[in-house]
Simulated scan of single mutants.
Amino acid sequence: MRYDALCEHYGMTPTRNNRGVAHENGGIESPHGHLKAAIKDALLMRGSRDFDDLASYRHFIDEVVSRKNRRNGPRIDAERAILQPLPGARTSDYEETIVTVTSTSSFTLRKVFYTVPSRLIGHRLRVRLYDDRLDLFIGGTHLMTLPRGRSFNNGSHGHVVDYRHVIHSLRRKPMALLKLVYRDQLFPREPYRQTFDRLIAALPERIACRQMVELLAMAHERACEAELAELLAADVAANRLPDMDALRIRFAPDPAALPDVVVELVPLVTYDVLLAGEAA
């Protein structure tokens, strides 16, 4: 069991509550309830439950917990002198499982759909599942890290999608974008989603999908995702469709940046000399 492994790693002896002695269980549950109440009060004082990112939320929780733990400082200091030294390494704080990458360049784990680069199609990956991320391995080689997704309370699947992983298949079948289950998660920034909504409203579906896929491919292949998003946002604000020809020219490769490769052709008579030498 994971709890037994945790106790063994840190040299702790696990104990159990005595049956029928309710206050022993309450000794743990009550502080937990007080902490939840303190977090709720801190959120009310803050005035918002929205955070910019996970790191900001964790910092907020750390501050609440630190304030509550400060009162226990003297007792912790008294016990610290007789505590055992920590092990040289942390215990395993992840679960490990094996997944197979499907032909759609994806896999599903814990009711969450993840995309990965197409080169991994057909491979079996070893996944270390942390609270906030997934580390992917082939054998002992670390490939990449993905943010961990969550399924929804209504039972529907979550999606962690990177458009760069699936753009090549979309270029072959642009119309797939129209019915894509994870389409909203596919767009890397809000202007891309807004642009697609305008394209669908103004153009035939086939043309709208083809142009949107081209925009995503341009963002990936020309490494201009942020700059292109700014241009698309300006088009949305001006209530106009993107000028595809102008964008192709703007983000086309710079000829001056291309290397000037000179290939010197070998005279064919050299091969005659080589063959004559082998014959001799």
Rank of each mutant, 00 (worst) to 15 (best):
T115P: 03
V116C: 00
P117L: 07
P117A: 05
P117F: 07
R119V: 11
R119L: 08
L120A: 01
I121N: 04
G122L: 09
H123K: 14
H123P: 00
R124Q: 12
R124L: 01
L125I: 05
R126W: 00
R128C: 05
Y130T: 03
D131M: 12
D132Y: 11
R133T: 04
L134P: 02
D135P: 00
L136D: 01
L136S: 02
F137N: 03
I138L: 15
M144E: 13
M144V: 03
T145Y: 05
R150Y: 11
F152D: 11
N153D: 14
S156M: 06
H157Q: 14
H157E: 15
G158Q: 07
H159S: 15
H159Y: 15
V160K: 09
V160P: 02
V160R: 13
V161R: 11
D162I: 04
D162G: 08
R164F: 04
R164W: 04
I167D: 09
I167A: 08
I167K: 10
H168W: 09
S169G: 05
S169D: 14
R171V: 06
R171G: 02
R172C: 04
R172T: 09
R172L: 14
P174Y: 03
M175W: 04
A176I: 01
A176T: 06
L177W: 05
L177Q: 08
L178V: 11
L178A: 14
L180K: 13
L180W: 09
L180R: 13
Y182V: 03
Q185Y: 11
L186C: 06
F187D: 02
P188V: 06
E190R: 10
R193I: 05
R193N: 02
T195Q: 03
F196H: 12
L199T: 09
L199N: 01
I200M: 12
A201T: 11
A201V: 04
L203Q: 12
E205V: 08
R206T: 00
R206F: 00
I207A: 11
I207V: 15
A208Y: 02
A208Q: 06
